[in-house]
């Protein structure tokens, strides 16, 4: 148990999830195109990408619901095509669909789920009570699910994925359609679940969710993993900070001179505001102030904006995450 964090190449403690060159086609559409990633034990790992990027296909393969056309996948150390039953016993899944039965109470939904994982009557009842406490639904345990709010149902879905104490929990768009309060509340439960030693693989197209919740994030685009790292490191490596300066009057001629500076990558002039993208804010700011002063237009105002995962996504895929999400089209060109 003490070696969970120190995975080594000799395979002493295999990752919780390994996807190795997975490919999958739906007719002529290539959903996965050599998808490769590994989720370490105990971490919250995010698959970030727009609709149609291949997130759901990857999850369905890892859940043994879909056979890959090519490549290998192991979950909790077991090959998904050779040991599907073993995988199913060790993983929990919270799909993005509404799978709670509205005609059963919260408690009945949980004991039903417990039966699907072969818990006996007493064990199922105890586990249901424990999970109702975990997601703060014990006061609403005996209300019909159809009478619960959207956020409460979502928490019930989450609890239903945990009845058998899975090694790995898959969360598919866990906060889709929830208001911000419910989302933040759900995040605290997800962190609590992580503290019990469960590995969590979640898919999301919410950048703030990936940023707030995930230890590591994989950016998936057109069925391929473009980058994997901590959100902070991704932002450092692929995102540029932006330095803004407001000048006493527009000075478009400054742009050319600033462009020669080694740390300045891109310059925009919008009226009396000049913006430059940089990988090192201090030298870039110094250069900006110096050049402005030399031109007799000392800046009135200076501010710096850090890169967001949105910028990382744009850098890596050439498209913005959210434009795609809103158009809801899987086959964006």
């Amino acid at each position: 148990m003490s070696t969970t964090a120190s995975y080594t190449a000799d395979g002493a403690a295999p990752p919780a999830v390994e996807a190795d060159e997975l490919t999958h086609n739906f007719g002529a559409t290539r959903a996965l195109d050599g998808t490769t990633f590994a989720v370490e034990r105990g971490e919250i790992f995010g698959l970030l990408g727009p609709n149609g990027a291949g997130k759901t296909t990857a999850i369905r393969i890892l859940l043994t619901l879909l056979e890959p056309n090519g490549g290998k996948a192991r979950v909790a150390g077991l090959d998904v095509t050779r040991h599907p039953i073993g995988v199913r016993r060790r993983v929990g899944w919270v799909p993005q669909d509404r799978t709670v039965d509205p005609l059963m109470t919260a408690r009945e939904n949980l004991t039903f789920a417990a039966g699907l994982y072969h818990l006996g009557t007493a064990a199922g009842r105890d586990r249901a009570a424990e999970l109702l406490r975990l997601v703060d639904l014990d006061d609403d345990a005996d209300r019909l699910a159809r009478a619960l709010s959207g956020g409460m149902r979502r928490r019930l879905e989450l609890a239903m994925g945990l009845v058998h104490v899975p090694d790995v929990l898959f969360l598919d768009e866990p906060t889709l359609g929830l208001d911000i309060t419910s989302r933040r509340r759900l995040w605290t439960y997800v962190r609590e679940i992580q503290r019990t030693g469960t590995t969590i693989l979640l898919t999301t197209h919410y950048l703030d969710e990936a940023d707030a919740l995930c230890d590591r994030v994989a950016i998936i685009h057109q069925g391929r993993i473009q980058a994997v790292d901590t959100p902070a490191e991704l932002k450092r490596a692929f995102g540029r900070a932006t330095v803004h300066a407001r000048l006493p009057e527009p000075a478009p001629e400054l742009a050319k001179r600033l462009g020669r500076h080694p740390h300045v990558h891109h310059i925009r002039v919008a009226g009396d505001v000049i913006e430059l993208d940089t990988d090192a804010t201090v030298p870039a700011t110094g250069a900006l102030v110096d050049e402005c002063r030399a031109a007799g237009a000392a800046p009135l105002d200076l501010w710096t904006q850090r890169a967001s995962l949105d910028d990382v996504f744009l850098t890596l895929t050439g498209q913005e995450l959210h434009t795609d999400v809103e158009s809801d089209s899987p086959e964006m060109t």
Binding site: L63, T64, L65, I85, R88, R89, V91, W93, P95, D97, R98, T99, D101, A113, L116, Y117, H118, M160
Partner: peptide, 13 residues
């Protein structure tokens, strides 16, 4: 249609 059947299939039932 609701997706519950998929959830059952992902369980060792």
């Amino acid at each position: 249609e609701t997706g519950l059947l998929s959830r059952m299939f992902a369980a060792p039932v």
